[in-house]
């Protein structure tokens, strides 16, 4: 991974929560504040296909991160992104709404007859309320709301290729089965 100038021991990885992405990265980027560490590159509206992101976007595991701009038509060389039509609010741990998350799917070919792929993009943008609150708190001089809302930060991944972090901080299905077998043991023990 391109850790930029992040100097951390082995095992530390870029695993931002949605809140991290909005609060620490998008917010600062939009407010033209320096991001430290400045790890997420700005790919603007370059028409990269999702499989081209490696080496251009910040890669961690099988997820890619980059800044972009809001746009209605996100076309690439060999396909296009289409919104799923669901927008979720991004909330802080204190349930404060800081942004919006939009899901897009990648279609291979030409719209509208493209073939749906497993590539997913999560596009984060600042919600209007958070933009205004930030202009209130951080920089009173900025009055152009459009500057805030044109930036997005994107997380791209392939849906069915499960995130293989190697750590497996979850039980595998097999472990789950063994776990339930332990119950059977206890039930059958008295006999």
């Amino acid at each position: 991974m391109d850790n930029n100038n992040v100097n951390l021991p082995p095992g530390f990885r870029f695993y931002p929560s949605d809140e991290d992405l909005v609060v620490h990265f998008l917010h600062r980027k939009a407010a033209l504040l320096p991001c430290h560490p400045d790890v997420i590159p700005d790919l603007e509206l370059y028409p990269y296909d999702p499989w081209e992101l490696d080496g251009k976007a910040l890669a961690e595991g099988k997820r890619w991160y980059f800044y972009s701009r809001r746009t209605q038509h996100r076309n690439t060389k060999n396909g296009y992104w289409t919104t799923v039509g669901i927008e979720e609010p991004v909330l802080t741990s204190s349930q404060h709404r800081v942004g919006l998350k939009n899901y897009l799917e990648f279609y291979f070919g030409e719209a509208p007859a493209g073939l749906k792929t497993n590539w997913i993009m999560e596009e984060f943008r600042l919600s209007d309320s958070s933009a205004s609150s930030s202009s209130r708190s951080s920089s009173k001089t900025r009055k152009h709301k459009k500057d805030y809302s044109k930036w997005v930060v994107c997380r791209v991944y392939e849906r069915n290729c499960d995130d293989d972090d190697g750590g497996a901080a979850e039980l595998s299905c097999l472990d789950e089965v063994f776990l339930s077998l332990d119950d059977l043991d206890e039930i059958s023990l008295p006999n």
């Binding site: 992040v6 082995p10 530390f12 695993y15 931002p16 991290d20 972090d165 750590g167």
Partner: peptide
Amino acid sequence: PPGFRFHPTEEELLHY
């Protein structure tokens, strides 16, 4: 730094 988490692989846990 923001966005970074300790998420070691099993190999890192053992070998490092």
